[in-house]
Simulated assay, not measured.
Amino acid sequence: MSETDDRLVPRRRVRRAVAWTVSVAVAAGAVFWMSGGWDAWRHDAALDSACEGDLAAGELRALLGGAEVTTSGGPGERAWWCRVRGADDEDGRVRLDLSVRRAGSPAAGVEADREDAPLGHGWTGSFGFSPDGDAEDRGEARVTVMLDCGTEPGDGLVASVSTRIDRADFSRAVERDRLTAVLTGTAVSYARRTGCEAAPGRPVKNVGMSVTSWDHRPFAEVSGSCAGVLDAATAARWGVRTAVETVPGPKPVEGCALGGTAGTPLYGFTAFYGPFLGLKGMEQRDDARLVGAHRDGRYMLAASCPGAGGKAVYEVASRTGAGHTSVLALDHPGLRAALRRFAEKSAKAHGCGVPTASSAVSGN
């Protein structure tokens, strides 16, 4: 073989190798396309840019476990919103409705309850899921979180998600954590894009579930939202034997329910923060409703709070007043003192001022 032939041999081998590589690549591409890989890649890319890029796509994938969904969203009249939808024979129905709004705007469409579990881990938020629901409702839940953008009252954001996922079971802590991560990740992304310098909390682990009247415990064992509200002697005198409470942790709406021997409701304490004053029409109440001895055993205090908390209202309502029977006369001074202890503990957790009976509560 000549020297020229010797030079051609490697070139021919290279050409054959290149041709083989191209053929393999084309074949692999065809397999990728035929197997649905292209659609999956395109779906993932769409999630990464969904809802102006704020949707926490990675956290959503972890929650949905590969279910394919469609998304839509963007600025709305009152709030930024993001909608996730999906339905098929294998995964069932998927519905997530997320929203983020300024804390000073009305809370229409945003849900929170005093019996919801706090998120903890540096977040002011709550998770709503009742373990007493039917089996087909185990994929329904709601999460709410408040973010401070500054120290001025009302300077913050309120984000929420309500969901129905047929394949999910939010009685499992891991799925509650995943749904919470979708909301917190989305809210923080929106905050950063819009110039809100919110300090995010830590990843949420083992978030709890809502409590119900069936979850009452002996009053002597309280350690959460009811702790320190009432001393043992007063509790005995009032006939308080049980309590329904959540674990400690700041939430948009907080509560403590005191009851009789079988959990019969006697007294309810509730704290409302920021836009959640509107849940009970509290933004319409003036100072006159905050003072004086009310025959029905209802008293309120108010406080000013930094950031998303804005204004807070603390209320005690007696279940032994009109429409109920009790062998005890209402202890009005005791009720006011118990409310003050409940309010001061809650206000401290939110970084609010000292609750008073003379703070105006109209607006935020």
Rank of each mutant, 00 (worst) to 15 (best):
W214T: 13
P200S: 03
N206G: 05
A87H: 15
S35V: 12
G259P: 00
D6Y: 15
G249Y: 06
K345I: 08
L47H: 03
E315C: 09
W80S: 00
G76E: 03
R95V: 10
P275I: 02
W81R: 13
C82P: 03
A236V: 07
G278M: 08
R172K: 15
A112L: 14
A141H: 08
G249H: 03
G259E: 04
G104I: 14
D54S: 15
G323C: 09
D215A: 12
G228R: 08
C352S: 08
I165E: 04
R319M: 09
T21G: 15
D286E: 12
P218Y: 12
G281T: 02
G263Y: 06
G53I: 12
A107T: 05
G249K: 04
T264A: 13
T212F: 03
L301N: 05
L277A: 01
H43P: 03
C82H: 04
H294M: 10
M300T: 02
T356D: 13
E90T: 13
F269R: 01
S130M: 11
R61C: 14
L330R: 12
T180Y: 04
A117W: 03
G185L: 13
E254V: 07
G125L: 02
T246H: 01
M209I: 12
R93W: 02
A87M: 11
E344I: 04
A103I: 06
G76V: 07
D134A: 15
L119C: 04
A17N: 11
R336V: 07
P275E: 08
L63P: 01
E59F: 06
E68N: 10
A262C: 10
R178S: 04
D116A: 07
R336S: 11
A28V: 10
R289S: 12
F129I: 04
K205W: 11
P248D: 09
A357V: 03
T194F: 05
G37N: 08
A312G: 13
L301K: 05
G363N: 08
A25I: 09
V9C: 09
E245L: 09
R95L: 15
S126H: 05
A243D: 07
S223G: 11
D88N: 15
Y190M: 03
W81S: 14
D116I: 02
F129W: 08
G92I: 00
R217G: 12
R16C: 03
A329H: 07
R138N: 10
G37S: 05
R95M: 05
D88I: 06
V327S: 15
G92V: 01
R237L: 10
T325R: 14
R202V: 09
E197C: 05
G195R: 05
G268S: 11
W81K: 15
S49K: 13
V188S: 00
A27E: 04
L98W: 01
A303H: 05
V9Y: 13
S72E: 14
D134E: 14
E175Q: 15
L258N: 06
R340D: 10
G323Y: 05
G353R: 07
R13C: 13
G36C: 04
G307H: 00
A17F: 11
G239Q: 06
G120F: 00
L147T: 05
A46G: 07
C305E: 04
D166K: 02
V247D: 12
M300E: 03
A181T: 02
K311H: 09
R102H: 12
D287S: 12
D5C: 02
E254P: 01
